[in-house]
Design a protein around this nucleic acid. Structure first.
Lengths: 193, 193
DNA sequence: AGTTCACATGAACAAACGTTCAGGTATAGA
DNA sequence: TCTATACCTGAACGTTTGTTCATGTGAACT
């Protein structure tokens, strides 16, 4: 099983690493396991990534960029803020559900010193999108005059919680639609209705 | 530093373990480190806990029981559902903020097979409290007729997200009050106002 | 004073870890 | 056919891991 195309090997390594990091966590997924799953030798693995940290970070970076790009795209040309909130919610949660591997990987090893800065940047960017939507909603008079930053944090927290739920209680997930509805309408009865 | 009271040693071990598990995670906090921090020998550690798993689980169990008890107490004799939601939120989030160690410990190592069942039970119980409050709110006509289970999941998800935020972005936390307000009132402008 | 017993020690062990390295092999160009 | 190059191999190394065990120690009871 020799003489492969280099980039293809690298790709197989990344795939295997994502799978194993996700299932076992950073510490318990050993380089040997990853090499094995990728159909390459241990030495070969180190030919493509200079060490375990680099492998992990490369993985994270590429997947998170992809994630961010998609959510951004899905919202950018929706005019109605209420609809945009819903869309952002739905896209994010669906993506998370479909890519459990990434989610597991990123949720786990939380206190990791060496991936933290990257994650923070990612979160800030995502929260920024929500803030823009809220500001737009307030400007156009559709939303109440809430504290934009606080509210964005809260909404983002719902998403983060959902993502965590995927890991801990996969069969206790709520529907994105119901969630959008609660965020928009609240729990209290409307005066009129 | 010999001849201690046994239970006191055990207590020191638990303290040290919580601190080190929290800071370094399950895998990277070694039994030697824990023994060291507890001021006991490696062998002595195994006198009190038969292995690393047991130490971890004992820790988790005791802290989670404490957590559950406190949140339960804080809500049980508040009549107004809206107020109860707020109280539950505040107490839970404050507790989480005050006990970062526990939170880190429990958020980290998410995919752990051997602690999962316990965690699920804990979450279910907590969600049950919220469900009761919502049901009460609907019955008394204060809340809209929402899907109780779904809504409870969502609210719980906010909490879970907050808890995660403590770890990842400690200075990007929202206020429990603002959060309660959003959940109760929603984002859309009220008809009357 | 002697025995017992709960608590404590740290050297020792096997296993697993991340990483390196001396070497091997198939392809591409000469 | 020879050489250069890119890709690959797995034994080996030095650490560190969780866990065990033969041995000690001091207080309490007989």
């Amino acid at each position: 099983m020799n003489k492969r195309s280099g980039i293809e090997s690298k790709k197989r390594i990344i795939d295997a690493a994502l799978r194993l990091f996700s299932e076992y966590g950073y510490s318990k997924a050993s380089m040997r396991m990853i090499a094995n799953a990728a159909g390459i030798s241990i030495g070969g693995l180190y030919l493509h990534f200079k060490n375990k940290d680099e492998l992990y970070l490369t993985l994270m970076k590429s997947k998170m960029d992809d994630f961010a790009g998609r959510t951004m795209d899905s919202v950018k040309d929706i005019a109605d803020p209420a609809e945009a909130i819903n869309a952002f919610m739905t896209v994010t949660l669906d993506y998370a559900k479909k890519h459990k591997g990434l989610i597991l990987l990123q949720g786990r090893e939380l206190g990791f010193t060496f991936g933290l800065e990257m994650k923070r940047k990612f979160f800030k960017k995502q929260r920024g999108i929500i803030e823009d939507i809220i500001r737009c909603g307030i400007r156009t008079g559709i939303f109440r005059k809430v504290n934009v930053r606080e509210t964005a944090k809260i909404i983002f927290s719902v998403i983060r919680g959902f993502v965590l739920s995927i890991v801990v209680e996969p069969n206790a997930l709520f529907s994105p639609e119901e969630c959008g509805s609660l965020i928009l309408n609240g729990l209290l009865k409307r005066d009129g209705k």
